[in-house]
């Protein structure tokens, strides 16, 4: 490879030209440089060949069909289709609800009125425990999608109760768990180790089959029971703290519904 050396500007232009990012007015001038500089032209060929090899190599490796992945893709397709359908019929449904006077509940939820915890609204920063809750919920969904659910037992509503959370250095902390209404069925409870100690995860199934996670983590600064909502990795989360315990509720519910569930839970803890 000989000829003129390649200047820094030419080297930068090489990428713009190759990736179709160069302004049309400059292309002709750069093509003239390519024609007169064999070293520059050779480097362009080399980059192009490298790109072809990279595309081909990754594409061949990506050309596999994994049953579980295809199942998940099918579920996502169905979900997006359903969401699209829901959006189309939502205005009509809202109008019908208003006619029936059902708007009062919506107003109540959106305004955060009524007794009990206050609503702080959307926040930008996601606390570590809420981030962990999103992670735990996604894993639980994956497990539930890829494995058959364990047989469920018809159970009466679970009254409020307490649980022992192991802490570092052998300590144990007693945390209050919220009362759960008959609409939620507990299908799994597990201890989740995370970066800041130990947490409890409760996985519930709702009547429509959707899954909901309650994530209870100990430690952290004591705060009032203000409810916060946040989106993490496309997942809506509602969290609050009561004393030294942090609670996060997440699931694939409509925003207002998720807030209503969280509000009920927070109320039951506050009353304890």
């Amino acid at each position: 490879m000989g000829g003129d050396p390649i200047s820094l500007n030419q080297d930068a232009d090489l990428h713009l030209y190759m990736d179709g990012e160069m302004e049309p007015a400059r292309r002709a001038a750069f093509e003239a440089q390519l024609a007169s500089n064999p070293a520059l032209a050779a480097k362009l060929d080399e980059y192009r060949h490298q790109q072809d090899m990279l595309r081909l190599g990754l594409d061949m490796m990506a050309a596999v069909s994994v049953k579980e992945t295809e199942t998940l893709a099918g579920r996502l397709r169905w979900r997006l289709d359903m969401d699209r359908f829901s959006r189309r019929v939502a205005p009509l449904a809202a109008a019908m609800l208003l006619v029936m006077g059902g708007w009062s509940l919506t107003v109540w939820v959106q305004s955060g009125a009524g007794t009990g915890p206050q609503l702080a609204g959307e926040v930008d920063d996601v606390p570590a425990f809420a981030d962990e809750a999103a992670e735990a919920h996604s894993k639980a969904i994956a497990l539930n999608t890829l494995q058959p659910s364990p047989p469920q037992v018809e159970a009466a509503p679970v009254p409020m109760q307490t649980a022992q959370v192991p802490l570092p250095e052998g300590h144990v902390m007693t945390v209050t768990l919220p009362a759960i209404g008959p609409e939620l069925t507990l299908i799994r409870a597990s201890i989740v180790p995370w970066n800041h100690g130990t947490a409890l995860q409760f996985l519930y199934r709702e009547p429509d089959g959707e899954l909901l996670t309650l994530f209870v983590a100990s430690g952290g600064p004591a705060q009032d029971g203000t409810l916060h909502t946040v989106v993490q990795d496309s997942l809506r989360l509602v969290y609050w703290r009561a004393g030294l315990v942090a609670y996060t509720v997440t699931g694939n519910k409509a925003d207002g519904d998720l807030l209503t569930v969280a509000k009920k839970m927070a109320d039951s803890i506050r009353r304890s």
């Binding site: 992945t69 998940l72 579920r75 979900r79 959006r87 894993k139």
Partner: peptide, 21 residues
């Protein structure tokens, strides 16, 4: 990589409502 794709799909399913039509 397959785990990564599967977890991405799981999260996309969970958060499908955040996808604009």
């Amino acid at each position: 990589a397959e785990d990564l794709v599967q977890e991405t799909l799981v999260r996309a399913i969970s958060g499908s409502r955040t996808f604009r039509p």
